[in-house]
Design a protein around this nucleic acid. Structure first.
Length: 801
DNA sequence: CTTGCGGAATTTTTT
DNA sequence: ATTCCGCAAG
């Protein structure tokens, strides 16, 4: 450890260079204060793009460098695992190896770590399973069926949401029973559902996502000596995205920042550290947040946590970061204008010194496909100008909007990747493989067992399964026990053999769980269960892809083994249970990123396409009637806008396909909130409206019925009066037809420069150039009327002339 | 017990 | 449009 590292002298840096302190270089005065301030509690109100990650990492680095804290005394909570990894890396870059041993993780990861360590203390064993929302729903589905709860209007998703909300408020079954109105039969039924669900989880030795937080809080409250261990351990706690914390997470932080009391020392003999007075000091708390970016109220995030921080934590200090280092002034003006329509907020105005930059580009397509084509064309143009694909992102409100975008992107041969959505780990075959892994990791879990019992087909149907379960219930044993003793049930000899055989395989592999690597365990299970063999032997062509996915999973476990030589199966299962949509983001890949607005939070891109800016989509129909819904949707729009560094594209469609039906879409109310001079419309809603036949008449008809003062059409006319440039003439031919939705296959059609072709949407054109080989060849085509396009030859709707 | 058909529901956002 | 579920036939 060098003396420079210990130096607190701001005039020196690590290498003795007197130019400045690497911790403070390039920071503005507010940011410096946020890095250097020391006190019991600090709230950093950080507007979008104000460099909060930089401030947070330097603050941590500063604590380590000055020896105010050892790495093990720091707990930093981030929103995603990716953010955690990034923060660890950036702290490491400043202070080197001393970053090792810090707890930088999400709420959920930190809690799993604590729970695994302390599980035995309160009636769980440390190999508990983590149920994701799909698992929770599967359990609830069984319960609802058993109780005939659908007669009371209880659905799986309703019950799941309600239970999740209760848990986020730290209400357990007994707490709910006390306050519930049990004269209401529906409430009574729900209570029973809640009770059985809780029971089902504990029987399975499992926690759901919400339990991870809630049970940790319960653990701390019920066992003060355990809480004291962590209260003493963490001297500095830092929480990012504090505006998105819910009550349970808030309570966890409160527990951790309580000073350990002397009695607690006495109740934990053996852990007693000879009591200097500073051993009893509460941890210092730093939170970073921006109430304008609170977009998770739907899962219990409570904006009051940040608004009332100063009251909750007395002697706290607040530092405001308003200077934006990310976006152009045009983008910030639009963002400020939009967010200022939310009334219950502290006024905060982002500013920058980088200048106005380009105008926001607006576009209205005739359909979702038309809109997607616009996005694809603009991305191609940006790329031709030298913008890398990885610096471009496309945002949307709902995952279902990816379909149209993907269809067009594939056809245009644009490299893209979808973040979130149907994740790898949600695929059926991957869940099956995990079922096997969980079955050996946590034999008490019946959910995993049921999933694999008859996968691949072993002739063990629902009736057999029910018989096994009943046998187990009668004796207070687990489903797994019943399988081992299947011969006592008097089932057919074939079925009995299949059940006992499976139980034997599981038992034998389970014996090696402690000593074997996850990859070996998985491989053995897939072999001996016959799962992989069944997929390979299948006639269904999709099963081939499934087998590949399973192979991919094996590769993932091998990779995990390489990165974590001592990693157990339990470690692996924990890690994959907690990966989020944004976590597998790989910035180095040269692809355009597609994601929901929620996933986009915390990220930034040079060029951003915000699609589907329509009523019923943004704000979403479902949120329109909820209290605070429209305001939260506005914040979502605000988050999307502020992700853009240089260029922002806002697009919408006049019609959108939904549930297989085509519906008329209206421009979002939020569009009007952006000053018209900031947007340059390539095709405004009015322009799209005035052309074309029946579609626009339908739109007009509805709009007339809807037009009050300050309606959209009114502000459009104002915009037109302000002198918008006319639409580029080529727009007419280029966008006139909706793109055909079917994916075709041109076989081994080959093209060469100079060939003339005909495209169903773009008309005739001449091939400039062909790149790539085989099924990936791409034609660069100059169309006579529709401009220049790149097409994936194999699937483009074209013919050679 | 498995397969296959037709009707229903689905799509709001996520750790 | 696609997926999921329940029911009936094999």
């Amino acid at each position: 450890m060098t003396t420079a590292l210990d130096s607190h002298d701001p005039g020196r840096s690590d290498d003795g260079n007197p130019v400045g302190d690497p911790l403070l270089d390039g920071l503005n005065p507010r940011q410096r204060e946020a890095v250097e301030y020391r006190g019991p509690s600090l709230l950093i109100v950080a507007g979008a793009g104000s460099g909060k990650t930089s401030v947070l990492t330097r603050r941590i680095a500063g604590l380590l460098r000055s020896r105010e804290a050892w790495p093990s005394q720091i707990l930093a909570i981030t929103f995603t695992n990716k953010a955690a990894a990034e923060m660890r890396e950036r702290v490491g870059a400043i202070v080197g190896d001393s970053a090792e041993g810090m707890w930088i993780s999400t709420f959920h990861s930190a809690c799993v770590r604590i729970l695994r360590r302390e599980a035995e203390a309160f009636g769980f064993s440390k190999n508990f399973t983590i149920y994701d929302s799909a698992d929770s729903k599967a359990l609830l589905k069984r319960i609802l069926k058993e109780l005939d709860a659908d007669m009371f209007g209880l659905t799986v998703s309703k019950a799941a949401n309600r239970i999740s909300q209760l848990k986020n408020e730290l209400t357990d079954v007994e707490g709910f029973a006390r306050d519930a109105n049990l004269n209401d039969p529906t409430e009574k039924k729900f209570l029973e559902v809640f009770r059985r669900y809780t029971r089902g989880l504990s029987d399975a030795n499992a926690f759901d996502f919400d339990d991870l937080i809630g049970q940790t809080v319960y653990l701390f409250r019920a066992f003060p000596h355990i809480a004291a261990t962590y209260q003493r351990r963490f001297k500095h706690i830092l929480v990012d995205e504090y505006q998105d914390t819910n009550h349970a997470q808030y309570s966890l932080i409160r527990e951790l920042t309580k000073p350990p009391t002397p009695e607690q020392f006495e109740t934990s003999p053996g852990v007693l550290v000879q009591g200097q007075s500073n051993e009893l000091e509460a941890a210092s708390l730093t939170v970073v947040g921006d109430s304008d970016q609170s977009i998770y109220a739907f899962r219990g995030a409570d904006i009051r946590n940040i608004v009332e921080f100063e009251r909750d934590f007395p002697r706290s200090t607040v530092i405001l970061l308003e200077q934006n280092y990310r976006s152009t002034q045009t983008i910030l003006d639009a963002a400020n204008a939009v967010i200022s329509h939310n009334f219950d907020r502290k006024d905060k105005k982002l500013f920058t010194t980088v200048g106005a930059g380009d105008k926001i580009v607006g576009f209205t397509g005739y359909s979702g496909h038309d809109e997607a084509q616009f996005v694809a064309d603009e991305i191609q143009k940006l790329h031709d100008e030298g913008v890398a694909y990885k610096d471009i992102a496309v945002f949307y409100r709902t995952n279902s909007q990816t379909r149209a975008l993907e269809e067009i992107f594939i056809r245009a041969a644009l490299p893209y990747r979808v973040l979130g959505g149907t994740k790898f780990y949600e695929r059926a075959e991957i869940k099956d493989a995990f079922g096997y892994l969980i079955a050996v990791a946590n034999p008490a879990d019946p959910l995993a067992l049921r999933r694999i019992m008859n996968t691949p087909k072993r002739g063990i149907g629902p009736a057999t399964e029910a018989a096994l379960q009943a046998w187990a219930d009668d004796r207070g044993m687990t489903l797994r026990d019943a399988m081992r003793n299947a011969s006592e049930l008097g089932l057919g000899p074939k079925v009995t053999k299949a059940i006992v055989g499976l139980a034997e395989v599981l038992d034998e592999v389970m014996a090696k769980v402690e000593t074997s690597k996850p990859a070996d365990i998985l491989t053995e299970l897939l072999e001996r269960s016959g799962y992989l063999a069944a997929l390979r032997a299948s006639q269904d062509p999709q099963d081939e892809a499934r087998a590949e996915n399973v192979d991919e999973l094996v590769a993932v476990t091998k990779e995990f083994g390489k990165n974590n030589p001592d990693g157990t199966l339990l470690d692996f299962l924990t890690e994959v249970s907690l990966v989020a949509a944004a976590d597998d983001l790989d910035d180095s890949s040269g692809t355009v990123s597609l994601m929901t607005l929620h996933t986009a939070k915390g990220l930034e891109y040079d060029s951003v396409f915000l699609t589907g800016v329509e009523e019923d989509l943004l704000p979403h129909r479902m949120s329109a009637n909820e209290p605070g819904g429209p305001a939260e949707e506005r914040r979502l729009f605000y988050v999307g806008i502020t992700r853009a560094r240089k260029r922002l594209f806002l697009s919408l469609a006049m019609t959108r396909a939904q549930f297989g039906e085509v519906n008329v879409a209206m421009p979002s109310r939020y569009l009007q909130e952006i000053p018209t001079e900031l947007i340059e419309w390539k095709q405004s809603p009015g322009m799209a409206n005035s052309r074309g036949g029946t579609q626009s008449r339908a739109l007009n008809a509805r709009r007339d019925g809807n037009s009050g003062g300050g309606s959209w059409s009114g502000s459009l006319r104002a915009a037109a009066a302000g002198g918008l440039p006319p639409a580029p003439p080529r727009a007419k031919t280029e966008w006139a037809n909706p793109v055909t939705a079917t994916v075709r296959d041109n076989g081994d059609l080959t093209l060469a420069a100079g060939d003339r072709i005909r495209h169903t949407d773009f008309g005739d054109g001449t091939v400039n150039q062909v790149t790539g080989a085989g099924p990936k060849s791409i034609a660069d085509v100059q169309f006579d009327t529709a401009g220049r396009k790149r097409l994936l030859i194999k699937i483009a709707p074209i013919e050679k002339l």
